[in-house]
């Protein structure tokens, strides 16, 4: 266990932070799971934060001119360079501290918020570079499994079989034909101190993971699964339930990788069938029996692989 995390006791339902770095009045859709994840993450981090936000849903809903929902310093940049700008901000802070123009003992966290498109597709090489250089920052990927901002186009984080406008189902196709890219594994392969996956349905788990990621000295990556009622074709009130179901069916397992060691933070011993999760969403409505079976097999195999990783270390 890392020494930075030894003192951290964790949040509980009784000692939640009072401050709200994310203001109401933003223009997210009703029942948006992504903005909830963002709010919880910022609540865990507190006010001493510089936020770097790649293009995506969270940028457009929080900053339509002349309004902003951010109560912390915030910079918007293009899809591809979120991690690069964050490493620049972190280096600038370091330089200011060295020159004595910024109090040396004041702790400021640099945090990146990017969507799955900005992380897995367009921003992947900047992320890889920043993780490799070892800047002290937190990268939070808010994964809603497609480019929802521009009208539901497929990304490499879109799951197998999902309907999007660029992977439509029909006579010859069944929606997305490739499997979801495992970005947490890519981040963990860089040998960085902290990688975690979280979902807003388990809010204490999410807040603790984000806070741990900020406390760690060096780069940290948190992958947050966020339901999107508009893109997935679900009811707004079911967002939290779907996020919970994704964990309970083992589709999105919750785990941490601390210095290369895997810890499963929520073990699912009696998984629900994936069908229960799939049938609630319009994007999976067209799936036939064989595709659902293929998804079930893949989910089971992935979970077995993860269990082995967690056991042998």
């Amino acid at each position: 266990m890392l020494k930075e995390l030894a003192k951290f006791k964790g949040f509980s339902a009784k000692n939640l932070p009072k401050e709200e770095p994310f203001a109401p009045g933003h223009r997210a859709c009703q029942g948006c799971g992504e903005v909830l994840a963002l709010r919880l993450a910022l609540k865990a981090l507190g006010m001493n934060v510089i936020a770097v936000s790649a293009t995506g849903c969270m940028e457009i809903i929080s900053s339509p001119f002349p309004y902003t929902s951010w109560r912390v310093p915030w910079i918007h940049i293009a899809f591809e360079n979120a991690a690069a700008v964050a490493s620049g901000v972190e280096s600038a802070l370091k330089a200011l501290k060295r020159k004595g123009r910024f109090p040396k003992n004041r702790r400021v966290d640099v945090v990146v918020f990017a969507g799955d498109g900005g992380t897995a597709d367009i921003g992947l090489q900047a992320l890889s570079g920043a993780l490799e250089r070892g800047h002290d920052f937190v990268y939070i990927c808010l994964d809603n499994e497609a480019y929802m901002n521009t009208g539901v186009q497929r990304s490499s984080c879109t799951p197998y079989g999902a309907m999007t406008t660029t992977s439509p189902p029909g006579e010859k196709s069944f929606g997305q034909m490739t499997w979801k890219k495992n970005v947490p594994a890519i981040a963990a392969a860089h040998g960085i101190p902290y990688v975690a996956t979280a979902t807003p349905a388990f809010f204490l788990d999410l807040m603790n993971k984000v806070k741990k990621a900020a406390l760690v000295d060096g780069p940290a990556y948190v992958h947050i699964f966020a339901p999107c009622p508009t893109g997935w074709g679900t009811k707004g009130e079911e967002s939290i339930m779907l996020a919970k179901l994704a964990v309970e069916t083992r589709i999105f397992p919750l785990y941490e990788v601390i210095e290369g060691k895997y810890y499963i933070t929520r073990k699912i011993t009696k998984p629900k069938p994936v069908e229960e999760y799939l049938k609630r969403q319009r994007r999976f409505r067209h799936l036939a029996e064989e595709q659902i079976r293929a998804i079930q097999q893949r989910v089971d195999a992935e979970y077995e692989r993860l269990l082995k990783l967690a056991e042998c270390l």
């Binding site: 203001a23 109401p24 933003h26 309004y67």
Partner: peptide
């Protein structure tokens, strides 16, 4: 630079009418 100098001023935007 289209800077917004007032933090969290989206509280003025009432989303309740949605």
């Amino acid at each position: 630079g289209c800077y917004i100098l007032e933090p969290g001023n989206s509280v003025k935007f009432k989303t309740g009418d949605w």
